[in-house]
């Protein structure tokens, strides 16, 4: 079991790296816009020194754009901070919808690079499960990425949360390529995470969906 936990941690490190890379790219894009706005202010000051009057409305628009991008970057960093704190406790009770939405926001650029968006449908009432919060995010991302790659035609992947008896289902559609799905979920990382979290992976071919079935109460073996 110790060896298994080591492999889960190793998979987690790769996952952490991937998410950190995409988020830092997002932050750099924001910094680039802020940097250019600062540069534009310098250009305008230089022009003012040469006799061209400063337009207060133009300065206001630049300040607004900087504030907008700072706000956006702050949101991205807040998400990254929440993600980083998921490793604090190896076992905790989490709100499933909140965890899935965090993953969707963190991976927005990875989805948009595929020309896709992911939407989590809000459950009728909050759904909480006791689990390893970080391994849960890792498994959810594996499923989201698989759903996107296996749905070449769909611009949007929908994620639904359903409460079953002692378990919770996270269902993703509209999947088309089930050969790709089977291949992906027979890979080592996916099998390892499913086994570690005692989760099941379900393929609903007629319903064009894949699902993770997670225990409501998990404890390490």
């Amino acid at each position: 079991m110790e060896n298994n936990q080591g492999r889960v941690a190793e998979a987690g490190t790769r996952f952490f790296g991937r998410i950190s890379a995409t988020v830092s790219h997002e932050i750099k894009n924001g910094l680039a816009v802020i940097n250019e706005n600062a540069g534009l202010l310098k250009d305008l000051i230089l022009m003012a020194e040469q006799g061209r009057p400063l337009d207060p409305a133009r300065i206001q628009r630049i300040a607004d754009k900087v504030l907008e991008r700072v706000d956006k970057a702050d949101h991205v960093v807040r998400n990254l901070n929440q993600f980083a704190h998921k490793v604090d406790d190896p076992i905790a009770t989490v709100d499933l919808s909140e965890s899935l939405n965090l993953m969707v926001e963190l991976t927005g650029r990875l989805a948009s690079n595929r020309g896709k968006t992911i939407r989590v449908a809000a459950p009728a009432s909050p759904v909480q499960i006791t689990t390893d919060p970080f391994a849960l995010l890792n498994l959810c991302w594996c499923a989201m990425e698989t759903a996107m790659d296996a749905a070449p035609e769909a611009p949007e992947i929908t994620v639904d949360i359903n409460t079953l008896s002692n378990t919770v289902e996270v269902r993703m559609g509209a999947v088309e390529d089930f050969d790709l799905v089977s291949g992906k979920f027979s890979e080592e990382t996916e099998k390892l995470l499913l086994s570690y979290l005692r989760a099941e992976f379900v393929q609903d071919v007629p319903g064009k969906a894949i699902a993770l079935v997670l225990p409501e109460k998990w404890s390490p073996a």
Binding site: N29, A32, V33, E36, N37, G39, L40, D43, K65, R69
Partner: peptide
């Protein structure tokens, strides 16, 4: 793919 970046860069480069 960032419209904000394109707008401001093109303005500064045109200047």
């Amino acid at each position: 793919d960032e419209q904000d970046f394109l707008d401001i860069m093109s303005e500064r480069m045109a200047a």
